[in-house]
C-alpha cells in the first residue's frame, strides 16, 4: 500500500486505483472507493473536515495512476489551484523518491525543473493561488513534503517581492526544491530523532547544505544563485548561521529568500522533536528574527502575504 494525498484522489482519472482509508494498527485500512468509481464530493468534503489528508492505494495501482496524472497535468486540468498543486506533487512523488535514492543528482535536477515549471504556471493565476495558500501546505514529516512547500512558498514570495521574470521564478523554484538535497546523506535516525541532538549529531545535521552543494556543484545547468541557495540557506545575516558563517549581503539574495520560507515551514510543520505552531505565531517569531537572523524586507513581504490570506481564511 502507498500513501497518497486526498486532494489528488479527487481529480477525475480513469486510472485511479482502489482507495483505502487509513486505520490505526492492528486494524487494516478500509476500502473507501473502488477503482473506476467516482468519489462523491460530499464524501470527500466529509473526510477533509474530519482531518484526513492522506489515503492509501495499492502500490501497483498507484504507479499507473501517477503516470496518468503526469499526462493529465501536461494536457491541462480544470480543477482548483490547491488540488492542482496536490496533483502535481503526487505526480512526481515516486519519481522524486527514486531520484532521491540515486547516487547522482541528475534525475533530481530535471524532476525539480518540471515541478518548478508547474508551480510557476500555477502561481501565474496569482489570486487563486494566493487564496489557496492556507491549504497548499502538506506536512507529513518528510523532506519531500517540506521541499515542495518551500518550492511553492519561494515562488510566491518572489512574485510578491516584484520578481516577474518567468525564467527567474523557474530557477528559484527548482533550487528551492533541491535546497535540502544534502539531507539524503543524513541518517534517518538523526533526521527523525524525537529529542535534542548531541553535538556530533548536530554537526552531521548542519553539514547538509555543504553536502547538497557538493552533490550539485558540477551540474552544468544550475546557476550560481541556485547553488548558493542550496549552500547558504542556513546562513543568518548576523553571521550566526552555517556552514560558513557569512553575514549581511555576503549571503546570496536567493538564500536569504529561501531561509525565510524555510523557517516558516519548519515552524508550521509538526516535527519529531516538537509540535507544529499556528501560522500567526510563526510569523511573530519570524518578526523577532527579522533584521538579526532573517532579511527584514523578505520577512515583511512574507508577513503581509500570509497575514492577508489568514485574514481571508478567517
Amino acid at each position: 500500500m502507498t500513501a497518497v494525498r486526498l486532494g489528488a484522489v479527487a481529480v477525475p482519472c480513469a486510472h485511479r486505483g482502489d482507495v483505502y482509508l487509513p486505520a490505526r494498527p492492528p486494524r487494516t485500512p478500509r476500502l473507501f472507493c473502488r477503482s473506476g468509481e467516482t468519489i462523491p464530493p460530499s464524501s470527500l468534503a466529509r473526510l477533509q473536515r474530519s482531518g484526513v489528508t492522506t489515503v492509501w492505494m495499492p502500490a501497483s495501482q498507484a504507479d499507473a495512476w501517477r503516470n496518468r496524472l503526469r499526462e493529465l497535468m501536461a494536457e491541462g486540468l480544470d480543477v482548483p489551484a490547491a488540488i492542482l498543486l496536490e496533483t502535481a506533487r503526487e505526480a512526481i512523488r515516486d519519481e522524486m523518491s527514486e531520484a532521491w535514492r540515486a547516487k547522482t543528482s541528475d534525475a533530481l535536477v530535471s524532476c525539480a525543473a518540471r515541478f518548478s515549471q508547474q508551480v510557476v504556471d500555477l502561481c501565474a493565476k496569482r489570486d487563486e493561488m494566493a487564496e489557496a495558500l492556507a491549504s497548499i501546505a502538506v506536512h507529513d514529516g518528510n523532506t519531500f513534503a517540506h521541499s515542495t512547500n518551500v518550492c511553492t512558498y519561494v515562488v510566491m514570495l518572489a512574485q510578491a517581492s516584484g520578481i516577474s521574470s518567468n525564467c527567474t521564478l523557474l530557477e528559484l523554484g527548482q533550487a528551492a526544491l533541491l535546497h535540502d538535497l544534502g539531507k539524503r546523506r543524513v541518517h534517518a535516525e538523526i533526521l527523525n530523532k524525537p529529542g535534542p541532538l548531541s553535538l556530533a549529531e548536530r554537526e552531521t545535521m548542519n553539514d547538509h547544505p555543504r553536502i547538497g552543494f557538493q552533490d550539485l556543484c558540477r551540474q552544468p545547468n544550475l546557476t550560481r544563485e541556485q547553488l548558493l541557495m542550496v549552500y547558504q540557506h542556513h546562513e543568518r545575516i548576523d553571521g550566526g548561521g552555517y556552514p560558513v558563517g557569512l553575514s549581511g549581503d555576503a549571503i546570496c539574495w536567493t538564500a536569504q529568500m529561501c531561509s525565510v520560507v524555510d523557517v516558516y515551514d519548519a515552524y508550521t510543520a509538526q516535527r519529531s522533536y516538537r509540535e507544529a505552531i499556528q501560522s500567526q505565531q510563526a510569523l511573530a517569531i519570524m518578526r523577532s528574527m527579522s533584521g538579526t537572523q532573517l532579511c527584514t524586507e523578505h520577512v515583511e513581504c512574507w508577513n503581509r502575504l500570509v497575514s492577508r490570506l489568514w485574514a481571508v481564511a478567517v
Binding site: C217, Q219, L222, T223, L227
Partner: peptide
Amino acid sequence: RVAGTLPAF
C-alpha cells in the same frame, strides 16, 4: 593557485 573551478563559479 586555483587549479580547478566549478562551472557556476
